[in-house]
């Protein structure tokens, strides 16, 4: 099932090329915010699944073209993103120590929204296309072998990143307002056959940039989940983003159109705005790709000798 929010955060489900309103079906889920509503639905999904399925199948929806889809997880308590967790197409043969960071939940935006580049003099702004996991139930100290029981579903996530504003700060790199595009909908786990083998693709203005699979993760999803939940207890509706393969990163700049899709999670499209109209070279950032893959020891992440 593909769960979503549309227009003014009305909850819905996708049926072919239409959206079916489910707000009446789940009206008894207590909520103050839209996020509470989705988190409540996730927590009690077994109670509502059949009803939603029947209603969706029995109703004619609103054509997708006539609605505005919104971010399906508007305000997670924890938005945990893995750092450096890919083998970069096999280049990193020995897995690195696991690391992650928290990204501000207020950075999340939805489909067709706009990433706004801040006026700070970053060396470059990158896209990082990622598979994000949506947590289904309270998860603390979960064993790798049990991890999939805690996963409710999956969603596309772009971890927009500013480089070079601080020598190592992930807060300053990652938490800018609008730097967390997510969507277009939340796909329940039963519809994703093998999350560890999903193609992840990202295009900038129609040009394919990132093109990797989640099979390239250095530490797989269950062991990543085990590690994260050993540190922090995750709540229903929290988001764990798996990290990215850095071999296809490229610059984002004013008026870019960015699209991404992991597996068949739907295509997420966002725009980019930069009031300063800065420009960078448009190709894949090979300096970063090479340094992360340890083919070189310098350059990349905005330290490229090119005239940025």
């Amino acid at each position: 099932m593909k769960l979503l929010f549309f227009n003014n955060f009305i909850p819905g489900v996708l049926k072919d090329d239409t959206v079916v309103d489910i707000s009446k079906i789940i009206s008894d889920i207590p909520h103050v915010t839209a996020h509470d509503w989705m988190a409540g639905l996730i927590s009690n999904f077994s109670k509502y699944r059949d009803l939603i399925q029947e209603t969706a199948l029995g109703s004619s929806g609103i054509p997708l073209k006539k609605v505005r889809l919104r971010q399906p997880i508007p305000n997670p308590i924890n938005l945990v993103c893995m750092a450096g967790n890919y083998s970069e197409n096999g280049a990193i043969t020995k897995a690195k120590p696991l690391n992650a960071f928290l990204k501000s939940p207020d950075s999340i935006i939805g489909p067709e929204d706009t990433v706004i580049l801040p006026s700070q003099q970053a060396d470059i702004f990158h896209h990082e296309a990622e598979l994000a996991i949506v947590i289904g139930k309270q998860a603390m100290n979960v064993k790798a072998s049990d991890a999939y029981e805690y996963i409710f579903g999956y969603v596309n996530f772009i971890d927009i990143s500013a480089r070079g504003l601080h020598q190592d700060s992930l807060f300053i790199g990652k938490s800018w307002n609008t730097f967390g595009p997510m969507g277009p909908y939340l796909v329940t786990a039963d519809e994703v056959e093998d999350p560890q083998n999903l193609p992840v693709k990202l295009w900038v203005n129609g040009n394919l940039r990132q093109d990797y699979t989640t099979a390239d993760m250095g530490v797989d999803i269950p062991r990543t989940f085990e590690w994260v939940t050993s540190i922090v207890s995750l709540n229903p509706g929290d988001v764990l983003s798996c990290g990215t393969n850095h071999q296809g990163l490229s610059a984002l700049q004013n008026n870019d159109l960015v699209q991404m899709e992991a597996g068949r999670l739907g295509k997420l499209t966002v725009n980019v705005k930069d009031v300063l109209d800065r420009t960078w070279q448009r190709e894949i950032d090979k300096d970063t790709a090479n340094r992360v893959a340890e083919r070189t020891t310098t350059g990349g992440f905005g330290q490229s000798p090119a005239n940025f």
Partner: peptide, 19 residues
Amino acid sequence: GLAVGNLATDTFFPGKSWH
């Protein structure tokens, strides 16, 4: 001193967010 050796040298998450 946790997560030393990861690509990211910012290790605040494993430093600070424990239950």
